[in-house]
Write a protein that binds this DNA or RNA. Structure first.
Length: 156
DNA sequence: GCCAACGTTGGC
DNA sequence: GCCAACGTTGGC
């Protein structure tokens, strides 16, 4: 099993939105970055676990976990001229963008903030903590996954 | 709202 | 294929 971290802005789509969806499941569409696309198309597998990270908010941090319930398939929002994620260079014949479906696994009892992640030497290698990182999907190690759960379980 | 970091675009 | 200009991300 692989572990990942995916960012979303809570103003656009946060963990509350995911919790409110039928079966608490949602297609993770709108990703328009090749590295992140490749991970969804080629590397993410059914049952993989995902940390849900709230970005561009106060405070940023990890709010819960998700599970991959459908592996990479074309993101058809790119084909709809009315859609904000429209990309004229993508077509049903030659899809340029992909998405996976995710389902909510658990909401953490509290947010694990970016500051807390930075304060843990064991997490220093996390991609999300590297200077200038903007990638919205990043791999996470099993150890990092475990440590983040331990942090979430203790009161702040 | 600022701005550093990084990705993409397009002229050459 | 180089690289300057531009757009986006996202913490602060």
């Amino acid at each position: 099993m692989n572990y990942w971290l995916m960012k979303s802005e809570p103003d656009t789509f946060g963990i509350d939105d995911l919790a409110a969806r039928p079966e608490q499941t949602e297609p993770w569409d709108g990703v328009r970055n090749y590295q992140a696309r490749n991970m969804m198309r080629d590397a993410m597998r059914l049952g993989d676990r995902v940390l849900f990270y709230h970005s561009n908010c106060k405070p940023p941090g990890i709010v819960g976990t998700m599970e991959v319930v459908r592996e990479g398939y074309p993101d058809d929002t790119a084909w709809d001229p009315q859609h904000k994620y429209f990309d004229p260079k993508s077509s049903p014949d030659k899809p340029r963008w992909y998405r996976v479906d995710v389902r909510l696994l658990e909401r953490f009892p509290r947010l694990v903030s970016l500051d807390e992640l930075r304060s843990r030497p064991e997490l220093a290698e996390m991609r999300i903590l590297q200077r200038g990182n903007r990638l919205s999907i990043t791999p996470v190690s099993a150890e990092e996954w475990q440590i983040i759960h331990e942090i979430a379980a203790i009161a702040s």
